[in-house]
């Protein structure tokens, strides 16, 4: 107590607190909300810049094959469920984009139309980087197709939300996404073979900065689609560009596509 008083300005009371408001979560009708919060050791601008660079989305977001810009605010997404190899396309629009603070997009076509993704960024109050909050509200039309869309990599909507922000953090902080995909192992046996997917040995992780060309290295059934990831992301290029995002304090890279310009 005495020590605390020496180190900080001693507070005086009464002092106004706050009521906790839960972040969106759970199912309501056709909508399912999920959220995740991470502290990322990077500036809000760095987080925003990587999140909004569409050419890098396949590098860290699960199940993304490619994203193309149709017009300044319209994007076409091509996704693939690595489990089944099924690909599906939808369009999305940018609803709000405030560099370094907030980015909101909404799916406009296909059975998941209406799905929104909201990323909010704030500087950590005591200097640990950026507090990133990702809220996804999925529109679930029901049926098999939904399953393909919402359970990419056999993840639940809640889990894919968590994993995607985790991967963004991994790339920004560590420069790569940890993976054991393709490592050697002894004889797996039956249950081991099944669980290899669960444990990530042949479940495709987004490649991060590695030059694992996706989806060519998927199991046979899943490897039919065109491989764009390898072309998009030679590791040397990725490292160089990520490097420029992370270590040069530029707010936007004029040469690259960025969702907020």
């Amino acid at each position: 107590m005495a020590q605390a008083a020496e180190q900080f300005d001693a507070p005086s009371f009464p002092k106004q607190g706050a009521i906790w408001k839960p972040l969106p979560k759970g199912k309501q009708g056709k909508q399912q909300a999920a959220h995740t919060v991470q502290t990322i050791r990077a500036t809000p601008d760095q987080v925003f810049n990587l999140y909004t660079r569409i050419e890098f989305l396949p590098a860290w977001m699960e199940g993304v094959v490619s994203v193309q810009r149709l017009s300044p605010k319209k994007l076409r997404w091509l996704m693939q469920d690595p489990g089944t190899g099924k690909q599906f396309e939808f369009d999305a629009e940018e609803v709000e984009s405030v560099p370094g603070k907030r980015y909101v997009s909404r799916v406009t076509t296909g059975p998941t139309a209406g799905t929104t993704n909201t990323l909010t960024l704030e500087a950590h109050p005591s200097g640990r980087g950026t507090v990133a909050t990702l809220i996804n509200v999925f529109t679930l039309p029901g049926g098999l197709f939904t399953k393909a869309v919402t359970s990419v990599v056999s993840r639940s909507p809640a889990q894919i939300t968590i994993e995607n922000l985790r991967h963004l953090k991994e790339v920004l902080e560590a420069g790569e996404i940890p993976s054991v995909e393709g490592q050697p192992a002894g004889r797996r046996g039956i249950s081991g073979k099944l669980k290899q997917v669960l444990y990530g040995e042949n479940m495709p992780m987004p490649p991060g900065t590695s030059d694992r060309a996706r989806p060519d290295d998927l199991p046979e059934s899943a490897s039919k689609g065109p491989s764009k990831w390898g072309v998009l992301l030679g590791s040397a290029v990725a490292v160089a560009v990520l490097g420029s995002l992370l270590f040069v304090e530029t707010k936007s890279d004029p040469s690259g596509e960025s969702l907020h310009d």
Binding site: A174, G175, E176, I177, P178, S179, V180, E181, G182, Q183, P184, A185, G186, R187, G208, T209, S210, D211, R212, S235, V239
Partner: peptide, 27 residues
């Protein structure tokens, strides 16, 4: 290469497996 593999509780075996390779750029 040769490697020590866990094959269930109380059981390890020496097996010939593939050599490891670089997966991530920091490896």
């Amino acid at each position: 290469m040769k490697a020590v593999c866990w094959m269930g509780a109380g059981k390890v075996e020496i097996q010939t497996v593939e050599d490891p390779k670089i997966i991530n750029p920091g490896d």
